[in-house]
Amino acid sequence: MFYPNSPQTSPQLTQIPYGQQYAMMQRQIQQPYHPFATTEPQARLYPYHYQGPIQQEQGGFITQQSTAASPQYVQMRVTPVDQSIMSGYPNQTANGSSSSSFNYNIHPQQQQQQQQQQQQLRHHAMPVGSVPLQDDRYRKQLIVNYLAPDVTSTDLHELFSRFGELDGARIIYDKQTNMSKGYGFVYFCHAEDAKEAVERMSGYEFHGKWLKVGYSTNPLNIVPSNSSPYVHAGSRGAAG
Rank of each mutant, 00 (worst) to 15 (best):
Arg200Tyr: 03
Ser227Tyr: 13
Met76Glu: 12
Met179Ile: 11
His123Phe: 12
Ala94Trp: 08
Gln141Cys: 00
Gln119Phe: 11
Ile85Arg: 15
Ser97Ile: 10
Ile172Ala: 02
Gln56Val: 04
Ser97Trp: 09
Ile29His: 11
Glu192His: 11
Gln141Asp: 00
Thr38Arg: 13
His207Ala: 14
Leu220Asn: 02
Pro41Cys: 05
Pro47Ile: 01
Val231Gly: 11
Arg139Val: 14
Lys181Asp: 00
Ser66Asp: 08
Gln42Met: 04
Met76Leu: 04
Glu199Trp: 15
Gln114Arg: 13
Ile62Thr: 15
Tyr146Gln: 01
Ser70His: 13
Glu205Pro: 13
Val128Tyr: 13
Pro4Val: 03
Tyr18Glu: 07
Arg122Tyr: 07
Ser130Tyr: 10
Val74Gly: 09
Thr152Ala: 11
Asp193Val: 06
Leu45Cys: 15
Gln72Ser: 12
Ala43Trp: 02
Pro53Val: 09
Gly214Arg: 00
Ser98Asp: 09
Trp210Met: 02
Ser97Asp: 06
Gly52Pro: 09
Asp82Gln: 14
Leu166Phe: 01
Phe206Ala: 01
Ile85Gly: 08
Asp135Gln: 03
Gln55Val: 06
Ser66Asn: 10
Asp193Trp: 02
Glu205Ala: 06
Gln112Ala: 10
Ala94Asn: 09
Gly52Phe: 05
Gln51Cys: 05
Gln109Asp: 03
Leu133Lys: 14
Gln141Ile: 00
Leu156Glu: 00
Gly208Thr: 02
Tyr215Trp: 03
Leu211Lys: 01
Thr67Leu: 06
Gly129Phe: 06
Asn145Phe: 01
His232Met: 12
Ile143Gly: 01
Tyr73Val: 12
Gln116Asn: 11
Leu156Lys: 00
Gln30Trp: 02
Pro80Arg: 12
Leu159His: 00
Gln8Tyr: 04
Lys175Ile: 04
Ile62Ser: 13
Ser228Phe: 14
Ser180Lys: 02
Pro219Val: 01
Gln72Pro: 12
Val186His: 01
Gly96Tyr: 04
Thr38Tyr: 06
Gln12Arg: 14
Gln55Met: 05
Ala239Arg: 14
Tyr33Phe: 10
Leu133Gln: 06
Tyr46Pro: 05
Gly60Leu: 03
His190Tyr: 11
Val186Gln: 01
Glu158Tyr: 14
Trp210Asn: 01
Ala37Trp: 03
Ala37His: 15
Asn221Leu: 14
Asn221Tyr: 15
Gln83Met: 04
Pro108Cys: 11
Tyr183Arg: 01
Ser97Glu: 04
Tyr173Trp: 04
Ile172Arg: 01
Ile29Tyr: 04
His232Ser: 08
Ser228Asp: 07
Pro47Ser: 05
Tyr50Cys: 12
Asn226Cys: 09
Gln109Pro: 07
Ile62Lys: 12
Ser84Asp: 05
Pro4Lys: 13
Val198Phe: 14
Gln176Lys: 08
Val74Cys: 07
Glu158Trp: 15
Phe102Ser: 08
Gln56Thr: 07
Thr63Trp: 04
Gln109Ala: 06
Ser97Phe: 15
Gly184Cys: 08
Ala239Ser: 11
His34Phe: 03
Gln26Tyr: 02
Ser10Phe: 04
Arg162Met: 14
Pro47Phe: 01
Tyr173Thr: 08
Leu211Asn: 00
Pro127Asp: 10
Tyr89Ala: 05
Leu45Thr: 13
His124Gly: 07
Pro90Ser: 07
Gly129Ile: 03
Gln112Thr: 08
Pro41Lys: 15
Val81Gly: 12
Gln120Asp: 04
Val81Thr: 11
His124Phe: 05
Ser180Gln: 02
Tyr230Pro: 08
Pro47Thr: 05
Thr67Trp: 03
Pro47Glu: 05
Lys195Thr: 12
Arg44Glu: 03
Arg137Gly: 03
Val186Asp: 00
Gln58Ile: 04
Tyr46Glu: 13
Ile222Met: 03
Val131Ser: 07
Gly184Asn: 01
Ile85Asn: 13
Tyr33Asn: 15
Gly59Glu: 07
Trp210Phe: 03
Thr152Asp: 09
Ser130Pro: 11
Ser216Asp: 00
Thr38Met: 11
Leu156Tyr: 00
His123Glu: 05
Gln116Glu: 11
Thr79Arg: 14
Gln8Met: 05
Gln113Ser: 07
Gln12His: 12
Gln113His: 09
Ser84Trp: 03
Gln110Ala: 07
Asp155Ala: 07
Pro41Gly: 12
Thr14Ser: 09
Ser153Thr: 03
Pro224Leu: 04
Met86Asp: 03
Gln26Leu: 02
Ala238Glu: 04
Val186Tyr: 01
Ala191Gly: 04
Glu40Phe: 05
Ile16Trp: 05
Val151Arg: 00
Pro132Thr: 07
Asp82Lys: 14
Lys212Tyr: 01
Gly240Cys: 13
Ser216Pro: 02
Asn226Arg: 05
Gly240Thr: 04
Phe206Asp: 01
Asp193Glu: 11
Ala94Gly: 09
His123Asn: 04
Ser87Asp: 06
Gln112Tyr: 12
Tyr215Glu: 00
Pro127Trp: 12
Gln111Lys: 11
Ala169Val: 04
Gln134Lys: 13
Gly19Ile: 03
Ser228Cys: 12
Leu166Glu: 00
Arg122His: 04
Tyr183Gly: 00
Tyr146Trp: 03
Arg137Met: 02
Ser180Thr: 12
Thr79Lys: 14
Gln92Trp: 03
Asp167Phe: 03
Gln20Phe: 03
Ala94Lys: 14
Arg170Asp: 01
Ile62Tyr: 13
Ala194Asn: 00
Ile222Phe: 07
Pro41Phe: 04
Met25Pro: 13
Pro229Met: 09
Ala68Leu: 06
Gly19Asp: 05
Ser66Tyr: 11
Gln117Trp: 13
Leu166Met: 15
His107Trp: 11
Gln115Thr: 09
Thr177Pro: 00
Ser66Trp: 02
Gln83Pro: 08
Pro229Leu: 10
Phe160Asp: 00
Thr152Met: 04
Gln15Trp: 02
Gln110Leu: 09
Lys175Asp: 00
Ser161Gly: 13
Gly240Phe: 09
Gln112Lys: 12
Val128Ile: 12
Tyr138Ala: 03
Arg77Leu: 02
Phe188Tyr: 04
Lys209Gln: 02
Pro90Ile: 12
Phe36Lys: 15
Gly129Leu: 03
Gln58Cys: 13
Ala238His: 10
Pro127Lys: 10
Ala94Val: 11
Pro229Ala: 10
Tyr187Arg: 01
Gln28Ala: 05
Ser100Thr: 09
Gln31Asn: 07
Phe36Cys: 12
Thr67Ser: 07
Met25Leu: 06
Gln116Lys: 08
Thr39Trp: 15
Gln110Asn: 05
Tyr48Ala: 14
Gly60Ser: 09
Ser10Pro: 08
Ala69His: 11
Pro127Thr: 10
Asn221Gln: 10
Gln176Gly: 07
Ala125Arg: 10
Gln118Glu: 10
His190Ser: 04
Leu13Glu: 11
Lys175Leu: 04
His34Asn: 11
Thr93Asp: 05
Tyr230Asp: 03
Pro229Phe: 12
Ala191His: 05
Pro71Phe: 02
Ile29Val: 08
Cys189Met: 05
His107Ile: 04
Tyr204Gln: 11
Ala125Cys: 04
Lys209Pro: 00
Gln176Cys: 11
